[in-house]
């Protein structure tokens, strides 16, 4: 059983659906300390020297394994920068579940900057799930600044699901990916901001190899007085296929700036971007009201679906 406080357990459950010691390899970090760690036969987790963070080695050919590396912060005033590097061997197939939950009831800001680098071997397949969550009523902010770098070898495939639904005051998200021939990247980002929250999300995807492809979809909802800036860029340096989509709902006095960018440096690039910002369609609310929902209930259902 996990020896953690109720708040820590609650956060773990929110970000990683973890109620107990997870199966396979894992590292649970709480208030800047690794509180529980386990390597497996194919997945080795080693602490870094000199800086905080870990090197995570996934053996070539590993199949059907999972790595969980959740982070929780429940003390007010913690500021940390953590470097985690993933070395994913050729032909491996792995699920990596990260995520950070901050509960800040105090007056000081709590901040976690996670720098994740993925070195993805030939033909390897990675699914990466990252959930960010904030709670607590303190005046101190909950700040998360994730940096994600993905280096993909030939014919590798990476699918990333990045979700920030609640309670994070400030976030600057930066994601960079370099793809070699035949590599395939799929990103699904979901952002919801409330009150005075601000979220910046910047993607740069470089399609460097022949027949590489990327599909980056970001969905956001900005409520109250919150602000989001979404900056999605795909650069095609070889015959490749790229698609970005930025789909946003604004409510109340929310504001969103979408800056999709495409750069084609090869005549055989096929790059597409779509961007749409608008309030919830009136007919959607009306339809749900004819099913007996109030206007507020209808909005909630529409947003929950949209951010699913």
């Amino acid at each position: 059983m996990l020896n953690l406080s109720a708040t820590e357990k609650f956060l773990l459950n929110e970000i990683a659906d973890i109620n107990d010691v997870p199966a396979g390899a894992f590292n649970i970090r709480s208030n800047s300390q690794s509180v529980l760690r386990q390597s497996s036969k194919n997945v080795e987790i080693v602490s870094k020297e000199g800086v905080s963070g870990m090197d995570i080695f996934i053996k070539p050919g590993t199949k059907g394994e999972q790595v969980h590396i959740p982070v929780v912060i429940s003390e007010s005033g913690i500021k940390e920068k953590v470097y985690n590097d993933f070395f994913i061997g050729d032909n491996a197939d792995i699920l990596i579940v990260a995520g950070c939950g901050i509960d800040n009831c105090g007056a000081h800001d709590s901040q976690h900057d996670g720098i994740h680098r993925f070195y993805v071997g030939k033909n390897a397949k990675v699914k990466y799930v990252e959930k960010h969550y904030g709670s607590g009523k303190g005046a101190g902010k909950r700040i998360l600044n994730p940096v994600t770098e993905v280096y993909m070898e030939e014919n590798s495939a990476v699918e990333m699901e990045m979700v920030q639904i609640k309670g994070v005051d400030d976030t600057k998200r930066s994601t960079i990916a370099d793809l070699k021939a035949g590599a395939k990247l799929v990103v699904r980002e979901r952002l919801m901001t409330h009150e005075e929250q601000q979220a910046y999300s910047v993607y740069t995807v470089n399609l460097n190899g022949k027949d590489s492809s990327a599909d980056v979809v970001s969905r956001g909802v900005a409520r109250d007085n919150s602000y989001q800036k979404l900056d999605l860029k795909i650069v095609g340096n070889a015959p490749c296929k790229g698609h970005t989509e930025c789909d946003s709902i604004i409510m109340d006095s929310g504001r969103i700036l979408a800056v999709p960018a495409l750069e084609a440096n090869d005549v055989d690039c096929s790059l597409v971007h779509e961007a749409a910002i608008g309030k919830i369609a009136g007919e959607q609310i009306t339809k749900l009201m004819t099913l007996g929902l109030t206007e507020a209930e209808a909005e909630e259902q529409i947003i929950n679906g949209f951010l699913r």
Binding site: R219, D247, A281, Q284, I302, G305
Partner: peptide, 10 residues
């Protein structure tokens, strides 16, 4: 009306 993310079951 169409809805993104709402399933038929929902």
């Amino acid at each position: 009306v169409r809805f993104k993310g709402i399933r038929v079951l929902d």
